[in-house]
């Protein structure tokens, strides 16, 4: 009897209790599909991504889409006001979302957002960082790890070069960015657990 779905990739966190779990799932899927398509389009524009095998392109996207979305949609999390903006444009306070069952994942999303925003990255830096997030050679199910690793290294070198150029006195930003990668993995794992719980108890 779930009444709420506290993911901002919905138009609203409120779920019609009259609807079946399947139709709730279908609506949720329709809400986040455009965002996932945008991630795929972004991936296609990463130089070298299209040269990976089809299998590895899908594996990287399957494993990394949530993490890319977290980076792309930090703007939905207002750290000062402690609100989350859903797809409808309506904002919900952390307290309200907590009362709907949001827990550790919400807190961790705010922590991540706050730290990432504090780095004041340009659009170009953010885009390159997002490419690094997506092209990770340690994702499961890859068939050609060496190719992914080579692309990953190229992207990391490019990111380091860009950060060094833009912030000559703040090279620590590059280190801080790389340290965001395990944070994103942790968020991804927490999110997967929520999805599993939702699927088992819609």
């Amino acid at each position: 009897n779930r009444m709420h779905l506290v993911c901002p990739m919905n138009t609203s966190p409120y779920v019609d209790p009259q609807k079946s779990g399947h139709s709730i799932w279908e609506e949720f899927s329709m809400s986040f599909t455009p965002a996932v398509r945008e991630v795929v389009e972004f991936a296609k524009r990463i130089p070298g991504f299209k040269d990976l095998s089809q299998h590895d392109q899908v594996s990287l996207l399957k494993a990394g889409t949530f993490e890319v979305l977290v980076v792309r949609f930090t703007s939905l999390f207002d750290v000062k006001e402690r609100t989350v903006t859903f797809l409808s444009g309506r904002k919900y306070s952390v307290e309200v979302l907590r009362s709907m069952g949001a827990g550790d994942l919400l807190n961790s999303m705010f922590d991540f957002t706050e730290k990432l925003q504090a780095l004041n990255l340009s659009e170009e830096e953010m885009s390159l960082f997002t490419a690094v997030v997506l092209v990770s050679a340690d994702r499961s199910g890859l068939e050609n790890v060496n190719s992914v690793e080579a692309l990953q290294e190229t992207l990391i070198r490019a990111l380091r070069s860009l950060i060094t150029k833009n912030h000559p006195n703040e090279i620590a930003i590059f280190t801080k960015l790389l340290l965001k990668l395990p944070d994103l993995r942790s968020l991804n794992n927490m999110h997967s657990e929520q999805l599993l719980a939702f699927k088992v108890h819609p």
Binding site: V36, R37, E41, Q54, Q57, L61, A63, T65, L196
Partner: peptide, 27 residues
Amino acid sequence: FSDPASNLGLEDIIRKALMGNMEEKQE
């Protein structure tokens, strides 16, 4: 329920979105 991405239908969305790219690569 071991694969949340597949359960979400994510793989299907990703494959369809990649399709143009894949067809291009096969040619």
